[in-house]
Simulated assay, not measured.
Amino acid sequence: MNKILVIGAGGQLGQCLKTVAERRGISEIVFPVEQEANILNQGLLNSLLEKEKPKFVINCAAYTAVDKAEDEVDLSKAVNETGAANLAKACKANGATLVHISTDFVFEGNEVKLLKEEDAANPINVYGVTKLDGENAVIDILDEHFILRTSWLYSEYANNFVKTMLKLGAERDELGIIADQVGTPTYAIDLANTIFDIIQSENKSYGLYHYSNEGVTSWFDFAKAIFDISNTAVKANPIPGSAYPTKAKRPAFSVMDKSKIKSTFNIQIPYWRDSLVECIKQLNK
């Protein structure tokens, strides 16, 4: 088995990778703490990769506070662009392949169509801009890369929409949920499985791929499904995004076409609601 190094191991996806690695019996995998794997420290990254000698590096480290990024532009850029570039350089110097996680927010999302990898990216917020710059840095520096764009990530770990809705649903009688932003939720456990599928396939079709669960929904319908599946008695009211202004603009429609990843790696992708059922089952354990 190829040795794997996970950067950003403490975050949501990092924790999911840990869980899935245990389930799949993947033992040649290292989850360094942040102090040992700070992506803003090139020297530290180089010595970490020299020491561990991984064949694959998975980069889950990212600045993901979308609204805060509008104020913390430099920090967002440092983590999402410079950090990605640093890691790509360390991989190049040590002969490792990089699996880098990106986002649907690289798209403007102003037309109703499935977004393909080759479609023009035109981000409308700082987070999206810095993630796109990170993708481009990886592409420029390192040939041996897989960039996976994903969307609406949630799981039983860390803070995410599902856990927030369950918490608010238990505390309140009714909630207003945005109904005019459409995309696809992604269960981070499914994404983790797909990352390992790609690594274990030994398929060297490097490049950019889209991955989310199957299907299409709005934040409102996603919330309704969370309440239905968890038997949470709260009234959900659909509201327009304009009724809940945020610092950062969001894409109105960002549903990604997954046919490339499915055909290249022969991957089966679960429907979003089925995965949500599984996540809520795990949260109830």
Score class of each variant (00 low, 15 high):
Phe56Arg: 04
Ile58Asp: 01
Ala61Val: 06
Ala61Ile: 10
Ala62Tyr: 09
Tyr63Gly: 00
Thr64Glu: 07
Val66Phe: 13
Ala69Ser: 15
Ala69Trp: 11
Val73Gly: 09
Val73Ala: 02
Asp74Cys: 13
Ala78Arg: 14
Ala78Phe: 12
Val79Tyr: 01
Val79Trp: 06
Asn80Ser: 09
Glu81Ser: 07
Gly83Leu: 07
Gly83Met: 12
Ala84Ser: 15
Ala88Ser: 10
Ala88Ile: 11
Ala88Lys: 05
Lys89Arg: 15
Lys89Val: 01
Lys89Ala: 08
Ala93Asp: 02
Ala93Phe: 13
Gly95Ser: 10
Ala96Val: 06
Thr97Ser: 01
Thr97Met: 00
Thr97Glu: 02
Leu98Thr: 00
Leu98Val: 07
His100Gln: 15
Ile101Cys: 06
Ile101Phe: 10
Ser102Ile: 04
Ser102Pro: 13
Thr103Leu: 13
Val106Ala: 04
Val106Phe: 09
Glu111Asp: 13
Glu111Leu: 15
Lys113Cys: 12
Lys113Arg: 14
Leu115Asp: 03
Lys116Cys: 00
Glu117Lys: 06
Asn122Gly: 03
Tyr127Pro: 14
Gly128Met: 03
Val129Ile: 15
Val129Thr: 03
Thr130Met: 02
Lys131His: 03
Asp133Tyr: 14
Gly134Trp: 03
Asn136Glu: 13
Ala137Trp: 04
Ala137Gln: 09
Ala137Lys: 14
Ala137Met: 11
Ile139Gly: 05
Asp140Ala: 10
Asp140Trp: 11
Ile141Thr: 01
Leu142Asn: 03
Glu144Trp: 07
Glu144Arg: 14
His145Val: 04
Phe146Glu: 00
Leu148Val: 14
Leu148Gly: 01
Arg149Ser: 00
Arg149Met: 11
Thr150Met: 05
Trp152Tyr: 05
Trp152Asp: 08
Asn159Pro: 11
Phe161Leu: 14
Phe161Val: 03
Leu166His: 00
Leu168Asn: 07
Gly169Cys: 12
Ala170Gln: 15
Glu174Asn: 06
Leu175Gln: 02
Gly176Ile: 00
Gly176Pro: 03
Ala179Arg: 08
Ala179Phe: 14
Ala179Val: 05
Asp180Lys: 09
Asp180Pro: 15
Asp180Thr: 03
Gln181Thr: 00
Val182Thr: 09
